[in-house]
Structures are given as structure tokens and as C-alpha cells.
Simulated assay, not measured.
Amino acid sequence: MGQSPTFINFSPSLNSAVQSALKEDWDPLLEAAGTSGRQWEDNAPCASYSSDLFFPEVEHPWSDPEQIRRDHSSSLREPLSVCASCPLSVSARCLVESLRQEDKYGIRAGLLASERRALLTAWKSRIDSEAVSAALRGVPTALTSLEREEALSRLSADPSLNTDAAARGMAVSSKYLFQLLRDHQQHLCDIADPIHASIGGASDE
């Protein structure tokens, strides 16, 4: 693994939560974000600024963050100062939402896009069991691709689960959910019997 990102103008508590997340412990970050409340965006200091301020042209996901911060400190000073003044719960929620939406550009919670890249990769590989359970109960929940696969696995294994509720929670139609389940079950069969899967694939050509 590469070195952990170096954070500047970053609250120690949020920095600690991010470092934990990079080590696959998401609880500190998610717990902090969970206390932000429904109107968290209204409580963010950046709400009174133009969003353009947080999308500097000098910075991209593939940039070297330390070089960008060093060479463009004057243009980054204002947006990073605004982020540094943000309450912990709000900045944590801002960061979590950017990961859920897979934002690849812009400054979020005081992190440059290039500094969030490793965090976004780690986020995509995690499975939030509670989020999956909520979706299966019918609570509209944004799931990652891995979490959706987990939901499909649970649905396939447990016939007592309500597919209509799951469709609502996953924001798909019931018809589309059945198609996803069929594809998921076929994929499992292909893994269990790769020889027949390869023969079937050849016959389709």
C-alpha cells in the first residue's frame, strides 16, 4: 500500500476518522456523519459560497496532492479555510456523501479530489450490512455495487424476504429486481460449474 495522504487544514478528529477508514474501520467516520441531522447542508459554512470555489481548475483526481497544495496554496487557501471551519459532524457527512455519490472532482470536507482517491477505492470495497438490511426492509438506500450484490445474495438465500419491499429499497422496479436475481443466480451457477458455463458461453457465439 502507498503512504496515507497528508492532510492540511484538517481537524484532528476528522483526520483520525479518515485514517481509520483507510484501515477498513469506517465506524468513526460514519458515527460522526450520523450526528449531522437532516439539515446538515444548511449548517455547512460553504452554503453561503459559490460551489465554483470548491472546484479549483488546478486540481484533478490524478494530481499529486502535496505538489498541488504547495504550488497553489494561495488559490486553495480560501476553500480549505472554509472547510476547516466546518463542524465535525457536517464535514464527516459531507465526506461520506461524496463517497456515496462517487464524486471524483472538487474539494470535499477539506480533502482534495486526489486525496480522496484512496478513500473512494476503499469505500467501493466495503459492505455496509445495516444499509443492505435497510434496503431489504424497503427503506430507500443508496447501495454500492458490492452492497447490491450482498442484497441479491440475501434475497436468493431467504425466500421469506419481501421482494416488493426490496425493490423499493433498492430503487428499482419489481420486474427489474427479478431480472437482477435471475442474473445473480446464473452467475453463482457459473461459478459452481465453470465447465458448463464455458460450454454455454461458446454455444451462444
Score class of each variant (00 low, 15 high):
residue 117 R to I: 05
residue 128 D to L: 07
residue 134 A to E: 13
residue 128 D to Q: 10
residue 128 D to S: 14
residue 131 A to R: 10
residue 144 T to C: 03
residue 134 A to I: 08
residue 135 A to P: 02
residue 129 S to M: 03
residue 119 L to M: 10
residue 123 W to K: 00
residue 140 P to H: 09
residue 137 R to H: 11
residue 125 S to W: 01
residue 118 A to L: 06
residue 123 W to R: 00
residue 136 L to R: 01
residue 120 L to I: 06
residue 118 A to R: 05
residue 125 S to Q: 11
residue 143 L to M: 05
residue 121 T to K: 12
residue 136 L to V: 11
residue 144 T to W: 03
residue 115 E to K: 06
residue 126 R to E: 08
residue 138 G to I: 13
residue 136 L to W: 09
residue 122 A to S: 11
residue 119 L to C: 11
residue 118 A to S: 10
residue 122 A to I: 00
residue 127 I to G: 02
residue 131 A to F: 00
residue 134 A to H: 12
residue 141 T to R: 12
residue 135 A to H: 07
residue 131 A to M: 05
residue 128 D to P: 04
residue 144 T to F: 01
residue 138 G to R: 06
residue 120 L to C: 12
residue 124 K to P: 03
residue 126 R to H: 07
residue 140 P to N: 11
residue 119 L to W: 01
residue 143 L to C: 08
residue 137 R to G: 03
residue 123 W to Y: 09
residue 130 E to Q: 13
residue 116 R to M: 00
residue 128 D to Y: 05
residue 129 S to W: 09
residue 122 A to D: 04
residue 127 I to H: 03
residue 124 K to W: 00
residue 119 L to V: 06
residue 129 S to H: 10
residue 123 W to I: 00
residue 129 S to F: 05
residue 115 E to M: 02
residue 122 A to G: 01
residue 124 K to Q: 14
residue 138 G to F: 08
residue 132 V to G: 03
residue 141 T to P: 06
residue 134 A to T: 06
residue 138 G to W: 06
residue 142 A to W: 15
residue 127 I to R: 04
residue 135 A to W: 06
residue 137 R to Q: 15
residue 118 A to E: 11
residue 115 E to Y: 05
residue 132 V to Y: 04
residue 121 T to A: 15
residue 142 A to F: 15
residue 145 S to C: 10
residue 142 A to R: 15
residue 139 V to A: 14
residue 127 I to V: 13
residue 119 L to R: 01
residue 118 A to C: 10
residue 119 L to Q: 04
residue 144 T to A: 04
residue 129 S to D: 14
residue 136 L to I: 13
residue 130 E to R: 12
residue 131 A to P: 02
residue 139 V to D: 15
residue 116 R to I: 00
residue 122 A to L: 02
residue 139 V to M: 14
residue 120 L to W: 04
residue 145 S to E: 15
residue 122 A to W: 00
residue 137 R to Y: 10
residue 116 R to G: 07
residue 137 R to L: 15
residue 117 R to C: 01
residue 141 T to D: 05
residue 123 W to D: 02
residue 142 A to C: 15
residue 141 T to W: 12
residue 115 E to W: 02
residue 137 R to C: 11
residue 129 S to K: 09
residue 140 P to I: 13
residue 117 R to Y: 06
residue 125 S to Y: 00
residue 120 L to H: 08
residue 134 A to K: 15
residue 138 G to V: 12
residue 127 I to T: 15
residue 126 R to C: 04
residue 118 A to M: 13
residue 120 L to P: 10
residue 132 V to Q: 03
residue 117 R to S: 14
residue 143 L to G: 05
residue 130 E to I: 12
residue 122 A to E: 04
residue 142 A to V: 15
residue 138 G to D: 10
residue 131 A to G: 06
residue 128 D to T: 02
residue 125 S to G: 02
residue 121 T to Y: 09
residue 121 T to F: 05
residue 141 T to G: 02
residue 118 A to F: 04
residue 128 D to N: 14
residue 136 L to T: 13
residue 121 T to V: 11
residue 118 A to D: 14
residue 120 L to S: 14
residue 124 K to F: 01
residue 132 V to A: 06
residue 141 T to H: 09
residue 131 A to I: 08
residue 144 T to K: 07
residue 121 T to P: 01
residue 122 A to N: 04
residue 123 W to G: 00
residue 129 S to V: 10
residue 115 E to Q: 08
residue 126 R to V: 03
residue 116 R to Y: 00
residue 139 V to T: 14
residue 124 K to G: 11
residue 117 R to W: 08
residue 136 L to N: 01
